[in-house]
Simulated scan of single mutants.
Amino acid sequence: MKAIVYTKYGPPEVLQLKEIEMPSPKDNEILVKVKATTVTVADIRARGLSVPKAFWLSARISLGFRKPKKEILGMEFAGEVVSVGKAVKRFKPGDGVFGATLVGFGAYAEYICLSENGSVSLKPFNLTFEEAAAIPIGARTALHFLRKANIQSGQKVLVYGASGSVGSYAVQLAKYFGARVTGVCSTSNLEWVKSLGADQVIDYTMEDFSSAEESYTIIFEAVNKSSFSACNRSLKKGGTYINITEPLPTIHMLWTTFSNRKKIIMSQNAPETPEALNFLKEIIESGKLNVVIDRTYSFEKIVEAHQYVEKGHKKGNVVITLEQNS
């Protein structure tokens, strides 16, 4: 089978299309023919080993010190089950599925094996494979953090970085839970973020949201481009600050938690279970969550896709197709 392989850390050009052996499913695994995958920020960081300093040691241990332990990237996918292990009960050959492989990677390949109890679910019937592949990381991450913040109807929520993958889903999911949402993004994305359901949009190039009188119950930092001091000024007492990119709170954050009864939630992976995907499948099929695809590239153009995402200006998701008209 064909796969995109990288044997050393570096720029997008380290990714190479190669022929490798096709995997076989174990008793509790399914073998999926991958129809579409994506390029996420996590793929970019793993490829170049460009992680925050606080992650440096753990990233080296997980990914490999001198070279990658896992040579095939790809953290989300959609495809068709082609065979199952003898103990599998949830899926059968022919099922359309979508899922996340955040721990094991491996979606940059024509076939992938996964545990039936992992982060995999039946594909929403109203989505293409390309659309379904753009859900498992961004939407699941947004859902995980909003649930951790105990989001409630009527709360005011600010999403900083509302035009990215996680941010665009955070806007929609916060609205689904009944919140009043403010999205912060660049000038070119204002109308688009508003079309996602944001009640108010702020152009960060023209206005500092923290200088306004508005205060929020939840501030969701999706891109780590605002300061905690700014967010703290606009966060209500008893409110929650979410930062999905930083693993550890600063001394300022800890003191704020102690003195002002504010909750700080930092970067953490969503559980590798099917529950969140099943929930997202239901609300997508009911028309309450939309998938946004910025660009689509063929499997052979994955280097170009990585180059584009690395610029940091993508809107929503960047998808890789492994076959035409999937």
Rank of each mutant, 00 (worst) to 15 (best):
Y9W: 01
P274I: 10
N278C: 06
A107I: 10
A133D: 06
R261D: 15
T240K: 00
V88D: 13
I72W: 03
A212L: 11
K194D: 09
W192H: 12
V14I: 13
V41C: 05
T273K: 10
L122C: 03
I20K: 12
G164C: 04
L114I: 07
E304Y: 05
A133I: 01
S298K: 15
I4Q: 03
E272R: 06
D27C: 05
E207F: 14
L190N: 00
A87Y: 05
T245W: 09
E191D: 14
P271K: 08
E285H: 05
T245P: 14
L102G: 04
Y6L: 06
K156F: 10
E29Q: 07
L158A: 07
A270P: 00
E71Q: 15
I242T: 11
D43E: 15
I44N: 02
F220G: 02
Q307W: 04
L49D: 01
A54W: 11
K315V: 15
V39L: 08
V159N: 04
V34E: 02
S115W: 13
I135W: 01
A212N: 12
G99K: 02
L277W: 08
T128R: 04
S211C: 11
Y9I: 00
I30Q: 02
V291S: 05
F177H: 07
F91L: 07
G104F: 05
F228T: 03
S50N: 13
K262Q: 08
S119N: 07
N150W: 12
I61Q: 00
V120D: 08
L102S: 09
K148N: 07
K2S: 10
G85D: 12
G106W: 05
L190H: 03
K237D: 15
V184T: 02
S234E: 10
S163K: 02
N126E: 11
A222K: 10
G85Q: 08
N150L: 12
S286K: 06
W255H: 10
K281G: 11
V171M: 01
S50E: 15
A276S: 13
L158R: 09
L280A: 02
N126D: 11
V184Q: 02
I265H: 08
T296K: 13
K33P: 05
F91E: 09
P274W: 09
Q268K: 15
S115M: 14
L248I: 00
A133Q: 05
R180K: 11
G239D: 01
A305Q: 15
P124Y: 03
K148W: 06
K2I: 13
S58C: 04
A42G: 14
N325E: 14
V157T: 02
Y204N: 10
K236E: 14
T217E: 14
A46T: 15
L127W: 10
V159K: 09
F55D: 06
K8S: 06
K35E: 09
E221W: 05
I112Y: 09
L173Q: 04
V171P: 01
V166K: 02
I112N: 06
N290L: 03
V5L: 14
